[in-house]
Structure formats: C-alpha cells, structure tokens
C-alpha cells in the first residue's frame, strides 16, 4: 500500500472513531438530561408536599421505574462504547457475530435515527464466530449501513442479519432500495474497498434479492490485522 493510501486509511479510522464516540457521548448527555429532570421532578414533588399537596406513591414508583430505565439505557451505551474502544487496543480475536450485531445496534442507533431510520438486527441461528479485527469489521458494516441508508429505505427500517457461511460468516443488509450494480455502488467508496481488502471480505447484491451480502471467509491472515498494509504483506501481495 502506498504511503498516501496508508495515511488516508489511518485518517479514516480516526474519523470513524471520532464519529462513533461523539454519537455515543451525545446519547449519554440525553440520558443524563432525563435523569436530571427526573431528580428535579422528585424535588418538585417534595416541595409541593411541604406545601400540603399529598405525595402519591404511584407517581413516585413511576419515577423510580423511569430512573432505572434511564440508568439501564446509559449502561448499554457506556458498555458498547467500552467494547468499541477496546476494539482498537485489543489483539484481534474470535468475534462473536451476535455480540457484534448487538454492539452495532447500540452504536449506530443515533446515527441512523438522525436519518429517520431504525436498525433491526438478527443474530445467527446458532453461535457463530470468526477471528478478525473487530474495529475493521465494525467499520466495514457501518460503512455498508451508511451507504444503504443513503440509497433510501422505504420502510424506514434497515435490517442487519448475521449467519454462518461455511467456516466463515456472512452479514446481510436489507430494507434499502438497491440500484442496479449495487455491489459496485457500495465498493465505489475507497474506504469500503480498503476495508474489504483488509478483512478479505467480498460484497455481493444477488439480483432481485434486494439485499447486500457481506461474506467473510474462514480465518485468513488478512482478517486478523488492523492495517491493510499488513494484510497485504501477510497475503504476499505487492503494493
């Protein structure tokens, strides 16, 4: 890989990390805002009780439930952010497809909601995993979701399903309006092409299926590196 291409890949990686982090922290601010308003409402109710208005236990119970829900919501975001952060600093390992889909659902929720979309994920019927660099795989799936969202989603729902594919894994994205030559449309972005190279992944849009299939082969030297330059070196390719 040429130096320019390598530094562009690093810049894209940094940009992606920034995008996801900013989105997650924004979501967390919203959670804190709701918790703050709940606490404020409790304070209001106490002050009103001091002035003689009776405290309703049912109302207090609903507030407690709301607080617990918001804490769970915040915990999901922080846990996802923590896993995402470790996707950069941990050595590549066997990735559980179901866990990856769950992580993507949390991380991309705000990004897709901003486009008026929801993501529905379907885990593989049986546990499926693959040794791969989690950061690159998250980036690849995100970039495909982003492109699919830009193509228009009539039902406002994007579906992302994972499945075993021989000894590898496959992910299917549905719910978007695929143009003709859809796979080429997805691969027109240099970032997506580089990520496919790094992971040894192949994209296809079988005609009439209305879906994008992302196939990852069984563990290959390519799949477990973070850097496409290293991936090509391992595969013995000339740059």
């Amino acid at each position: 890989m040429a130096g320019d291409e390598g530094s562009s890949f690093s810049r894209d990686s940094m940009r992606f990390f920034g995008t996801v982090s900013a989105s997650a922290t924004h979501d967390l601010k919203n959670v804190l805002a709701v918790i703050q308003e709940n606490a404020g409402l409790l304070e209001d109710l106490c002050r009103m009780a001091e002035r003689g208005r009776p405290l309703e236990s049912g109302r207090l119970m609903r507030l407690a439930v709301e607080l617990q829900q918001q804490v769970r919501r915040g915990d999901r975001i922080v846990s996802a952010m923590n896993r995402f952060a470790h996707s950069v600093d941990e050595e590549p390992k066997a990735l559980d497809a179901a866990g990856l889909l769950e992580l993507l659902a949390v991380l991309s929720a705000r990004f897709l909601a901003a486009k008026g979309l929801q993501l529905q994920t379907t885990p593989p019927a049986a546990p499926a995993s693959l040794p791969a660099c989690p950061f690159l795989l998250i980036r690849l799936l995100w970039s495909c979701l982003e492109r699919a969202a830009s193509l228009g989603c009539p039902a406002k729902i994007l579906e992302l399903a994972g499945e075993s594919a021989g000894e590898g894994l496959a992910f299917r994205i549905r719910g978007f309006a695929p143009p003709s030559g859809a796979a080429a449309v997805f691969l027109s972005a240099a970032e997506t092409r580089n990520l496919c190279t790094a992971l040894g992944a192949a994209l296809a849009c079988p005609s009439g299926s209305g879906e994008l299939v992302i196939r990852l082969p069984a563990a290959s030297p390519r799949a477990i590196t973070r850097d496409p330059r290293e991936a090509r070196d391992r595969a013995g390719e000339k740059t």
């Binding site: 919203n30 805002a33 709701v34 409402l41 209001d44 918001q70 909601a113």
Partner: peptide, 17 residues
C-alpha cells in the same frame, strides 16, 4: 425533542410551574 422521556418529564415540571 425526539427523546420522549425528556419531553414528558420536562413538560410535567413546566406545568408544575
């Protein structure tokens, strides 16, 4: 606000005022 919980609780606090 697109956050239903925030909207609902802030509205209640405003009504209390």
């Amino acid at each position: 606000d697109d956050d239903e919980a925030f909207r609902r609780i802030l509205a209640e606090r405003m009504r209390n005022r």
